[in-house]
Computed example of a mutant assay.
Amino acid sequence: MKWTVEEIRTFLDVMEAGTVSGAAARSNLSKSVISKRITDLEAALGTALFRRHAGRITPTEGAEELALRLRPALAEMNDAVESAAWGMVGLRGSLAIAAPMSFGINHLSPVVADFARQHPELAITLDYDDRTVDLVRGRFDLAVRIGQLRDSGLMVRKLCEDPRVVVASPDYLARRGMPESLDDLQAHSSIGYLNVHAASVWQFSSEDGTVTGVAMQSRVTANNGEAMRDMAIAGLGVALLPLFVAHEALRQGRLVRIASKLTPVPLPISVVWPPVKPMPMKLRAIVDHLAQAFSERPPWLD
């Protein structure tokens, strides 16, 4: 049985792209090269990895199981090679980072730019999207996550906490009045968030640690914190926002903090990565860099 690393990479590219043409575009190779590598790998393994019909390919059950095992193995092999090179010439290779859009653009980009300046031989990819991505399938080395984390098997390092705020525009408050209590809030229309399950329930904590949830009715919903902020500035309702999204509008007076006696449950901000042993030097370096940048006092709290 003889197979090559290139064939393994190509196989995983086809699995993730779903088509030969998609894998060819991803790897900047011709479709004929992709097809030959897949055929050669099948010959080496002595089994078909894809069903072919009318110009389409569908992975077999064996291909699905093989891909699940190969993805972490290939990642660990890449990291081992890059870690060995680090001892001689510094951090090299590539680093792919996923993060929510508002936090990424406004606060993560400068921190990663500083890291990139320190390691000029390291290629860095930033992917900003409020949706939670699969790190392994997406080939991400790490991600910044905001909010309570589900038990996903990922390694986690908490960076800081963001104190959320309830806000509205001065114009909206002039028309509807200033809500202060939980009952007051429920009488107002809210601006909702699409990407979190049960986001319509706003949670507040008391001094004794008790958490109270308030169900809010949303006329306008958005999948991004800055879009929610802009809807609130436009006077379309009250919004529960991360302070890192709302702080500049509050400073400028375009939004006003309301329900000041209520304390929203804060949002933990964490960095997560797949469990790889030994931990690659490039991964350890970026995690430490992020922790140093955000753990003392995040910039939006100044």
Score class of each variant (00 low, 15 high):
25 A>W: 05
112 V>K: 04
124 I>E: 04
22 G>H: 10
243 L>V: 08
294 F>A: 07
19 T>W: 03
170 P>A: 09
5 V>R: 05
144 V>T: 04
238 V>E: 01
297 R>F: 05
163 P>F: 00
106 N>E: 15
51 R>D: 08
28 N>K: 10
19 T>L: 11
33 V>Y: 01
188 H>E: 07
30 S>P: 14
85 A>Q: 10
206 S>I: 10
218 S>G: 00
38 I>M: 06
253 G>F: 11
204 F>H: 02
63 A>R: 03
184 D>W: 11
178 M>Y: 12
160 C>L: 12
259 A>N: 07
10 T>V: 08
297 R>A: 12
80 A>D: 04
181 S>P: 06
160 C>G: 04
300 W>V: 07
77 M>T: 04
54 A>D: 15
197 H>V: 06
92 R>C: 12
89 V>G: 06
263 T>G: 03
34 I>F: 01
228 M>Q: 02
81 V>W: 13
277 K>L: 07
161 E>C: 10
35 S>H: 15
124 I>M: 11
210 T>F: 12
108 L>S: 03
132 T>S: 01
243 L>M: 09
125 T>W: 02
223 N>V: 14
277 K>S: 09
8 I>K: 02
158 K>Y: 04
215 A>V: 15
157 R>M: 01
113 A>N: 13
258 I>T: 04
111 V>M: 04
257 R>D: 05
149 L>D: 03
